[in-house]
Amino acid sequence: MIRVSLYEDVCDIRELLEETISTASDMVLIGSHEKAVDILENTRKEKPDVILLDIQMPGISGIEAALLVKEKYPYIQICMQTVFEDNEKIFAAICAGASGYILKASPPEKYVDAIIDTYQGGSAMSPSIARKVLSMFQNQNARVKEFVELTASEKKVLDLLVKGLSYKLIASELNISFPTVNFHLKNIYKKLHVNSANEAIRMAMQNKLV
């Protein structure tokens, strides 16, 4: 039996998925949660084989939660579910360690198939998601080339961001003003095609930019 933990903040969807998983013959639902803030503690207690994780969660996102789980429990498989077909979110989920990616519009049997595929080491993805992933990886060389456009100052800011320094401490460490730090970060986000510090850190680590 495949042990499944579920994370979904929308009550109606969560109840539907609870029923889908609970009635499947080859899996058992061991936990159902509306938030991912306690995902490490929940995972320690529940010991799931697969985590079905919504990408858009209150408190911390599914992508952030996936990163936490894979860092501490790399052997646990993660299948992301979302209403989004956004390239950046798909790429971020894969980089965070997700093995599968399913759209919420999928019928119950597709969810069951996705969980089984993820558990067995496959990459469960709908055809539209698979096409996007293929396109993204085909374009990776071009994107990595863009990373080298970071200036020396931007690379210093990014390096300190990866090391966990706050914006205020980055300004102090580099002897620059707080607005200057923000200016560099805006340019970094634009060049790395990200929208947050967490995504910038992930990109930096994945592509060994610092």
Results as ranks from 00 to 15, higher is better:
R143I: 12
S196I: 03
Y167P: 01
G100M: 07
Q81G: 08
L158F: 03
G121I: 09
V83C: 09
N42H: 09
K72L: 10
A36M: 05
I2V: 12
Y167C: 09
E85Y: 07
Y111D: 11
D86W: 07
K168I: 06
V144K: 13
E173I: 00
K47T: 11
L160K: 08
S5M: 14
Y189L: 09
R14N: 02
S153W: 00
E64M: 01
Q140N: 11
F183E: 12
N87V: 03
T82L: 02
Q206I: 10
F91P: 01
M27S: 12
I76F: 00
P108S: 09
V37H: 04
T151P: 07
A105N: 12
K110Q: 15
I63Q: 02
E15C: 05
A98L: 02
M205H: 04
R14E: 05
E88C: 06
N139V: 03
F84P: 02
L52E: 00
E109S: 11
N198Y: 01
V162D: 05
P127M: 14
I30K: 01
A171N: 08
Q138P: 04
N195I: 08
F91Q: 14
N198M: 04
L160R: 05
Q138I: 04
L160I: 02
S5Q: 12
V112L: 10
A93L: 04
I60V: 07
F91R: 13
S61C: 01
T118M: 06
Y167D: 11
D117K: 14
A171S: 07
I21C: 12
Q56C: 05
R143E: 15
L161N: 01
S172A: 13
D49C: 07
V10E: 09
D113W: 15
M203V: 12
L52Y: 00
K110H: 11
D86P: 10
P107Y: 04
I116H: 14
H193D: 15
Q77S: 12
V83E: 10
A24G: 14
V10W: 05
L17G: 09
V181H: 08
A204Q: 11
S5C: 11
A66G: 00
K47D: 14
E146A: 14
I94C: 10
I170S: 08
D54M: 01
L158C: 03
F147E: 10
K186S: 15
V162L: 00
E88I: 10
Y73A: 04
K72N: 09
D26F: 14
Y73V: 04
L169D: 15
K190P: 07
A96K: 01
L40F: 04
N139Y: 01
